[in-house]
Design a binder for these strands. Structure first.
Lengths: 149, 149
DNA sequence: TATAGAATGCAACTTTGTTGCAAAATACTT
DNA sequence: AAGTATTTTGCAACAAAGTTGCATTCTATA
């Protein structure tokens, strides 16, 4: 019990730090949603968060996610089933101010989870003349490790 | 006028051929939606099609797009703003039966258009052990050629 | 601790997508 | 070419997803 409290305090401290770094006021809904992201192993849909933070209003969750997106705390992942998925940005992504999330995302067709393949980086490509690149995303569909077993 | 008719006949023949190839019955809504795709230079959202084919019911458009997806006539493009965009598959994509759409897609942040960069193919990547790949998508955001000028 | 400013919850609304079913259109048979 | 089986369409009703305005509550700060 003491151990559990200490864990929660740790996470509480972490969420407050993230909010402070982004100069956002510290509210319980924001902390709760950040905690959800920190303990999630996969990218989350709005609906997932709604279920895990059901004490908060749907509108609040929409607005909080939008705020986090604006501040670069989270990012969206383009998915082939065109559901919106959100994931935490990596540390240096947040601190560096602008968004650069250079790893490949994996969408499991069986369990439906969206995973960040942190170790697989997106290869460089050459665009036709006249195009300017700002962001690049790579999404792979298939069966994930867990579902293959 | 004669010239215009001949053009429309040409496109009519083309749309009917596509439908026949996929063993779909030929209906005016399907032909209309195919014509829209054939004359579009960019990928289209459901909403775009609804505006361009307003004589048809919303439900019909949903069902037609789903049918075209099932037959591999069109494909969806994952976008970072998480709107669903549809584009015609290339010829060999249709005829070969299974879908393989190996080019990079470009999303212009300025004009909002989604373009198929047919000449830029998706580079190969290596997934971690245990993952199986079925489909791969690469989406680039930035400013397109037209908007840069 | 008082207060200005920000965030939240609620209600009402718009947009987007789905389903069942009767009517209409298409394909097929003869 | 006409009749019939099958498919497709449109309508209605609904469900889900997302948005907006405003009054209330909470947070930061002096």
């Amino acid at each position: 019990m003491i151990f559990l409290n200490s864990l929660q305090n740790k996470m509480g401290a972490q969420t407050e730090l993230i909010l402070k770094t982004s100069s956002l006021s510290i509210t319980s809904s924001r902390k709760k949603i950040l905690e959800i992201f920190l303990s999630a192993s996969t990218a989350l849909a709005h609906q997932d968060i709604e279920k895990l933070a059901e004490q908060y209003d749907r509108v609040t969750i929409y607005r909080t996610l939008q705020t986090f997106l604006d501040r670069g705390i989270i990012h969206t992942i383009p998915t082939t089933d065109n559901t919106i998925k959100y994931a935490l940005c990596s540390d240096d992504c947040i601190t560096s101010g602008h968004h650069h999330d250079n790893h490949v995302h994996f969408l499991c067709d069986q369990c439906g989870r969206t995973l960040c393949l942190d170790d697989v980086s997106i290869p460089a490509i050459t665009l036709p003349k006249g195009y300017s690149m700002k962001e690049i995303n790579m999404v792979v569909n298939g069966i994930c490790k867990t579902c293959m077993e």
